[in-house]
Design a protein around this nucleic acid. Structure first.
Lengths: 221, 221
DNA sequence: ACTTATTTGTTGGACGTATAGCAACAGTCT
DNA sequence: AGACTGTTGCTATACGTCCAACAAATAAGT
C-alpha cells in the first residue's frame, strides 16, 4: 500500500535521521506543552496530557528532558528565544528612544492574543509566582532585562530632549513594564478585557506624560 | 485543681462555648491558610500544612469547610471582606474624584507589603490564572468592581472639569487597575522591586496625564 | 448540685486517585 | 549488529476525602 513503485509519495517521508526524529519530537513536545498550558492551565500539564497532545506516549518527555523541571526549563528557553526573535525582527534598536518605548508597549499588547506563546508565557509566570517556585528567578531576570532596556531608552530620550527631564528613568521603566505585565494578567483573568481600548488609552497617556513637547490638547474630544 | 477559689484566673479560659470553639478554629484555619500561601506558595497549602500552622489536625479543615474548594472560597471571602473594610475606613467616597483615584492607587501600593493578606491575595489570584481554575471568575468580578468604581470617578472628574475630557474613562480605569495589578505581580516575582520608587513615579505620571490643569513643569528636576 | 445522655467538635487511620520517575522492552535507523 | 528513539508496566509518593473513634460541651434527669 505504501509507495509500491518508489519513494515518489509526497507524504512526509517516513524515513528520518535519528537526529531529525529526536529534534522533531523535542520540538513537538515543547509546543504541545505550550498548547496544554495555554488551553487548560499549568496544573493540567501532566506528562500524560503533553505526550498525547504531541502525538507520543506519556514517557517520552521524561526521557528527553530528564524531569518535569527539565521540560519546563526547555519551554521557558523556547519562549525567551521566540520573544527575542520577535523583538529583533522589529528593528526597535533603530528607532527614536520615545518611539521605541511606545512601540515596545504597542507590540506587546498587540501580540498578546496572537498565538499561544503569549498566553502560555504569562500562565507559566503566574504559576511560578503562585507557587514561589525557583522559576520565579528566571522570570524576574527576564523582566529585569526589559526594565534595563526601557530605562536606557528613557535616558537616551532625555539626553535628546525628547522625553522630559524630571522623570526618573528607572521608575518610568518599572511602571511601563508593570503596566504591560498587569494588562497581560488582567487579560488572562478576564478574557473579555478589551485589549484594543486599553492599548489606545495607555499609549496616549504614556506618550503624553513622557513627551517633552506634548501636543496642546492631544487627547481632547 | 482548676480555679479552686473562683474564676479569678486571667489565663485564656479553658472553657469555651461550642460556638466559640467553632469560630476560633475556623478563623485560625483561614488565617493559617493565608500564612502558608504567602510564605510557601499555593501548592504548599495542603490540609496537612494548614492544620499544622493553625495548631489543629489535618482533618479539621475538611470537616469545617467540606472540601478544599470550600476552604479556598472562605479564604477569598475573608480577603474581600478585609479589603472592603480597609477601603471603607479610608473615606475615599468623600474625596475629589481625581484625588480619590490617586489615593486608591497610593493606598494599594503602600499597603501591598504591610501584611500577609496582600501577598496571599495576589498569589491566590496568580494560581487561579495559572490553572484556569473556576476561582478566576471571582477575581475577575472583583477587578470589575474596582474598574467600574475607577471609571465612575474619572467621569465625575471630567464632569467637574478636574480631569481632562479627551480621556476614555473605561480605558483609563482599566489602565490604572492593570498597573496596580502589574506592580503587585512584579513585586511577587521579584521581591527586590522598589515599591516606593514605582509608587512615586506612577502617581506623578498619572496625576500629570489625568489632570485637566497640570502644573507647567511639575516633574522637572 | 451531681450524674447521665445527647449533641457538637476534633482526631488520625484507611482508601482511592493522580502523577513523576524508572526500568525493561520494542521499534527504527546506521 | 549495534546504537538510538520511543513505549509500556511498575513503584513510590503525595494528597483529598471519608469515617469511625474520641474529647469536650450542653442538656436532661434525679
Amino acid at each position: 500500500m505504501s509507495a509500491s513503485v518508489a519513494d515518489l509519495s509526497v507524504a512526509p517521508r517516513p524515513r528520518l535521521t535519528q537526529a531529525e526524529r529526536r529534534d522533531v519530537s523535542e520540538r513537538l513536545l515543547v509546543e504541545a506543552t505550550l498548547a496544554v498550558v495555554a488551553r487548560r492551565g499549568v496544573g493540567a500539564a501532566t506528562f500524560d496530557a503533553i505526550g498525547q497532545a504531541a502525538g507520543y506516549s506519556r514517557g517520552l518527555a521524561t526521557q528527553r528532558f530528564g524531569s518535569k523541571q527539565g521540560l519546563i526549563d526547555a519551554v521557558i528557553a523556547y519562549l525567551h528565544a521566540r520573544r527575542d526573535e520577535v523583538m529583533d525582527a522589529a528593528h526597535v534598536a533603530d528607532m527614536e528612544p520615545l518611539e521605541a518605548v511606545l512601540y515596545y508597549a504597542d507590540s506587546h499588547l498587540r501580540l498578546l492574543d496572537q498565538d499561544v506563546s503569549g498566553r502560555a508565557y504569562f500562565m507559566l509566570m503566574a504559576g511560578a509566582v503562585a507557587d514561589a517556585s525557583s522559576l520565579q528567578a528566571a522570570f524576574a531576570a527576564s523582566h529585569e532585562r526589559v526594565r534595563l532596556w526601557l530605562a536606557d531608552r528613557v535616558r537616551a530620550g532625555q539626553a535628546a530632549g525628547q522625553i522630559r527631564g524630571g522623570i526618573d528613568p528607572d521608575g518610568a521603566a518599572l511602571m511601563v513594564g508593570s503596566l504591560l505585565l498587569g494588562v497581560s494578567i488582567q487579560w488572562l483573568a478576564d478574557p473579555a478585557t478589551p485589549l484594543g481600548l486599553i492599548r489606545r488609552t495607555s499609549l496616549a497617556l504614556l506618550r503624553d506624560s513622557l513627551s517633552a513637547h506634548p501636543a496642546k490638547e492631544p487627547l481632547h474630544d
